[in-house]
């Protein structure tokens, strides 16, 4: 019995890790800026493209292979630094205080622009760089061979979750973000630079999306359309966990991934719809998600 449950658990956690990076960034941006950023998935795919391109350059230039590991992180940081402040200060800040429909339309417009930008810059052919995966090798768990890189992703997702919680509760900037989330008007009255907080939160969200994309590249070719697929799944996770809930995003990622894995193992025809069936079931019972609330918000 345990022999058959362990592979299910490993698969579910490995799937959840990849989804979590994107979903937690989405939910973080929503909790602080109160904007559902439809373009969030584009930062995932841009992070993937940049990481794959940098990795290919490192290998092509004959540099040590281990450099491809920090390159994943630095690529995500580069994407966040390049897009985060500019996009927030221009397009996104323009939508503050406007209706949700306007916010969705503006970020959807941004999504379309970024998708075309990727086609222009990176072309339409799949880009792939697998050095980090091949360097780490394989392990056998429960009679099934796994990539050690998959196990690394699970660990990294846990590190990101803990780091985010520590950042929010222990760091000054994190506590200021939490204050803005709790009550924006009171925060402004107390002298907190909310505009700066918005920029920090948005850039952090971009970074989380980009690191998700970057970490996916060693096992997946990057091609146009990757961002849209990821985004839809992230929406489901955010809805199940409750928009604005960091831990909610983590648990929802595991729930969605488990639903998908169970479908693949036992009801393959439900594979594609399993995450959304779970979302439907959760929202019927808890309309604000498992950890969300209609009246109070927390980060």
């Amino acid at each position: 019995m345990l022999q058959s449950i362990i592979p299910l658990a490993v698969d579910a956690l490995a799937n959840a890790a990849l989804i979590f990076f994107v979903a937690v960034g989405l939910t973080l941006v929503f909790s602080v800026l109160r904007i559902l950023n439809v373009a969030h998935g584009s930062f995932y795919s841009i992070g993937a493209y940049v990481a794959a391109s940098v990795g290919l350059w490192i290998v092509g230039a004959g540099l040590p292979d281990w450099l491809t590991f920090p390159a994943l992180l630095l690529s995500a940081a580069f994407v966040a630094a390049l897009f985060g402040p500019i996009v927030e200060k221009t397009l996104v800040s323009w939508t503050y205080g406007k209706s949700e429909a306007v916010q969705v339309l503006v970020t959807f417009g941004l999504f379309l622009i970024l998708e075309d930008l990727q086609r222009i810059v990176f072309g339409i052919q799949s880009v792939y760089q697998d050095t980090p995966m091949t360097m780490l090798g394989i392990s056998e768990i429960g009679g099934i061979v796994y990539l050690n890189y998959q196990l690394l992703l699970i660990g990294l997702a846990g590190v990101v979750l803990v780091a985010l919680r520590l950042f929010i509760t222990r760091s000054r900037t994190g506590r200021l973000l939490a204050a803005v989330v709790a009550d924006r008007e009171v925060s402004e009255a107390l002298g907190i630079d909310t505009q700066r907080m918005f920029m920090i939160a948005f850039t952090l969200g971009v970074f989380l999306a980009a690191i998700g994309g970057a970490m996916a590249t060693p096992t997946t070719g990057v091609a146009p359309g990757l961002g849209a697929d990821t985004m839809v799944l992230a929406f489901a996770v955010a809805a199940i966990g409750g928009l604005g809930q960091v831990e909610g995003a983590a648990i929802a990622s595991i729930i969605v991934a488990t639903a998908k894995v169970l479908a693949i193992y036992f009801a393959p025809s439900l594979d594609a719809v399993a995450p959304y069936l779970v979302m439907l079931a959760v929202l019927l019972v808890k309309p604000y998600g498992l950890f969300g609330s209609g009246s109070t918000r927390k980060i």
Binding site: P7, V10, V145, Y146, T220, D229, K260, V261, Y265
Partner: peptide, 13 residues
């Protein structure tokens, strides 16, 4: 689809 890891596990099993 971009990831087939679960399918690979299922086929291996």
């Amino acid at each position: 689809s971009s990831t087939y890891q679960t399918e690979v596990s299922r086929l291996s099993a």
